[in-house]
Design a protein around this nucleic acid. Structure first.
Lengths: 240, 240
DNA sequence: CTAGCACCTATAGCATTGCTATATGAAGAG
DNA sequence: CTCTTCATATAGCAATGCTATAGGTGCTAG
């Protein structure tokens, strides 16, 4: 089983944990499998890491360093909010590429007991947000901005992870990212109450689309397609 | 231990599970404690619910019905986006008031394996969003709006739950809520350089028409024509 | 009334889990 | 050579989810 070359047992345990965690599709990984794969016995694990969570913490710490390192690679662009955007994207990418690590870090929520990793991620984001605040790009207190962005970021990442790979739609990430960032930024104010169009019939909607199409010609349809499309649109607008 | 009045064992199991879940501060609840409190033995549990998850599913179903019921109490205001806002608030409130139930419902994420509860919540939200789309309040395809809002909603709720009660700041919820809803709504344009206003109105109208067509099928087009028409409509709503 | 039948519950126990009390080995210090 | 210290192994405990099997319990058919 233990195909590892001779390394210090501590390292072999870490390596085994990472490997099993990566191939277990999110199912719980037992200490026995880990020690077996590492070619060690139980007390060795507990001698080095205290308990199972200690081992996972160590594993996560390694993963988190990669995460932080990838954040640091992103040089400041001079536009702090763009840096925040990059950070969001890195966060999502990390979650998608290492879902098991990500779930160990952010997946298990306990009431009234925030995980260390959340605090660490918050601190990382806080740095960038502070820079945005300094240069007057922020609309709300930095702490609020950080919490809102991070909450949405984690929510989106968890949702993407939970979706089958085939139907993952990353527009979800971009859209939500820009939504929360725009909301906390002073660059563009959020307008509130508006004038709803109370009518909801097919005819009215068709007419509206027709009018909109006349003032701007989108490129998604060819000329012949557009011609036919408008013809049908006209027919629909006639009556219902 | 079993202080319950004589009820059918199935009900006593449910009741015991709820009670233990509520008093366990998020720690795992064992089947033995449940059966002990219910005054039953193990096979009874497995006879009625299949396995532990089945029991929790049943518990959650009850909780979810409360959740849905509280949603339904909110009469439509005529402003669909306000209804969406109420729904968000109800979601958060439910999570705060019953964190253990909430965590069973939305807390355990598995890669590529979305939970039923997420799908159900999505369907509930989808209804309201569709109404917003029908009346031209939506900026993006309803499916995208729903996912974005729900992801942020869950993310915010999880974050609030994980925070100590004393320092819970509900502004986080309001802020994020308005951010994502504003982003998907056409009532107040996001100052986003990527989406010029002219095409935006086309997109809005196309989305509204699409939603309207789904709720009433007009007879002016044949089946094949309608199919192609919808295909093009979809392409137009995708934005450019 | 009784025999059969379906449904529900209990006895007892298995395999796996995280973890540990205790012992054994090796390596340096005196 | 002895003694201490660190690291690993032997063996096993208590708790977990779950089940093979058997025992009631009530209903319907004869």
């Amino acid at each position: 089983m233990s195909l590892d070359i001779q390394l210090p047992p501590r390292e072999r345990l870490l390596q085994a944990a990472v490997e099993l965690l990566a191939n277990s599709d999110g199912a719980p990984v037992s200490t026995r499998k880990i020690t077996e794969l590492a070619g060690v016995t139980a007390p060795t694990l507990y001698h080095h890491f205290g308990d199972k969570e200690g081992l996972f913490d160590a594993v996560v710490a390694v993963g988190f360093e990669q995460y932080v390192a990838s954040e640091m690679d992103l040089a400041p662009t001079g536009k702090p909010l763009d840096d925040v955007r990059s950070m969001w994207d890195q966060h999502v990418r990390f979650g998608i590429e290492q879902p098991h690590l990500y779930l160990v870090m952010f997946g298990k929520v306990r009431p009234g007991n925030r995980s260390n990793r959340v605090s660490e991620a918050e601190a990382l984001l806080r740095e960038k947000i502070d820079r945005a605040a300094e240069s007057g790009h922020l609309n709300v207190p930095p702490a609020d901005a950080v919490r809102s962005i991070l909450a949405a970021n984690i929510g989106v990442t968890l949702m993407l992870i939970s979706e089958p790979e085939t139907e993952r739609n990353f527009e979800l990430s971009d859209m939500t990212r820009d939504a929360v960032i725009t909301a906390v930024s002073s660059d563009a104010g959020i307008a509130d109450s508006a004038t709803p169009v109370e009518t909801s019939s097919v005819v009215v909607a068709a007419i509206a689309l027709n009018a909109a199409l006349e003032s701007s010609n989108p490129q998604q349809l060819s000329n012949t397609e557009m011609k036919m499309f408008l013809e049908w649109l006209h027919r629909i607008s006639k009556d219902s």
